[in-house]
Write a protein that binds this DNA or RNA. Structure first.
Lengths: 218, 218
DNA sequence: GGATATATGGAGTTCGGGCTCCGCTTCGTC
DNA sequence: GACGAAGCGGAGCCCGAACTCCATATATCC
């Protein structure tokens, strides 16, 4: 878990109390949004953080900026999980990442929609994350843990898919996504029998389409 | 496809022009919400329907009521798809339903969140839908198309999961969900090899949990 | 410890979107 | 075709939530 989204390194450092309030606000926002979703009021965030509205708006120029900073932090955490999974050499790294990334999403539910959209925050982190997913996928395929026709965009769709289950079940059955993920991982395995069609008939999401969904940047 | 949510049968029938405007409003709302999501303005809905604000608010007492009527119609359509799938006797009905229900969700994206939540509209329809899913699942399992440890709540999670992919990809890759669904269905199949764990280790979502998520009614 | 730039809180302002009101029109019946 | 009931449009009302302003307080530097 990285620290919560330090501001840009080019800015002059904040005064100690200001920096502390910034952290308190991000922590509070994570809690409030996880509980009530992103349409929770900024006043509630400020109250939970124990600061006034003025402080919130000096640290973050808008509610959107606050959310972006939060999302940036989550993306950095995702990147760290991918780095950690990459240390496995037996082809199980992808499966580990699918589980740990889902755990992270479950813990930070509320702003998951922004997590996979165009927003600028943490762009480099999510870029590295994608690169590592490709490597982990190839490794898993080399070990015959995942069939060869699966593409990295298929893995991306697994994240989106798990997100859907997490957001639907989070209040009443916060761990239900684990079982669904087991079914999903089973769907990635090589198909040993030819009783059923072993080939996916629909073409995969292309990289270009993925770019348009997750960020038109560059 | 059923007609768009007739009002309660107990009410006296609407005047011809009023009934027509009701339909126009529902059609317009489906279009507008599918394009811009549920936070699109009611003014936009009225404009697309070609009626004034007053008309919208005489036909539906609130924006929420309009959405509920829309959701009720979709739930009735879902029920009809389940009835249609139930006519298959070779165990493929479940797979047909997964595809056709996903197609319906893709066509009506925008209010999918409400589709699976507590809202009252079309409760009986969704109830029958669930019953038929259970039957279709048993049939698929009897034909060995789906492994026996899969429960009906696992199927429900498949709907939630596909919804997540649909909502993420709808503007840029509106058919991407088809490939993801193929992976999901592969995950439901019997596992022929014992190279990997063939058993799901997480306990399924219970019926009681499902009830709390989709409706505390009754 | 004094000077000063920086930070704070919370009452008010703004604004967008849901909703209402009422003078005029249309439908359906006799 | 006349009459009453039901329906219509859209300008404006209203509320809630994002955002601003400034008198006061605090950290940092010497």
């Amino acid at each position: 878990m990285t620290s919560l989204a330090p501001a840009s390194v080019t800015d002059k450092p904040l005064r100690r109390d200001a920096a502390e309030n910034r952290e308190r606000l991000l922590t509070a926002a994570a809690m409030v949004f996880a509980e009530h979703g992103m349409d929770a009021g900024v006043e509630e965030v400020a109250r939970v953080a124990g600061v006034g509205m003025g402080t919130l708006y000096r640290r973050f120029p808008s509610k959107q900026a606050l959310i972006d900073a939060l999302v940036g932090g989550i993306r950095e955490d995702l990147r760290d999980l991918a780095r950690s999974a990459a240390t496995r050499t037996d082809g199980t790294g992808l499966e580990e990442l699918l589980v740990t990334a889902a755990e992270l999403q479950a813990a930070r539910s509320g702003c998951l929609q922004r997590l996979w959209d165009h927003s600028e925050a943490g762009r480099d982190a999510i870029e590295e994350f994608r690169t590592r997913v490709v490597e982990l996928l190839h490794s898993a395929q080399a070990q015959r843990r995942v069939r060869s026709e699966i593409t990295s965009t298929d893995i991306t769709m697994v994240f989106w898919s798990v997100r859907g289950v997490i957001e639907t079940t989070r209040t009443e059955a916060p761990t239900a996504w684990r079982r669904h993920l087991e079914v999903l991982i089973a769907g990635l395995r090589p198909v040993a029998t030819d009783q059923f069609a072993s080939k996916l008939t629909e073409k995969p999401l292309t990289e270009a389409e993925l770019r348009r969904i997750t960020g038109p940047n560059r």
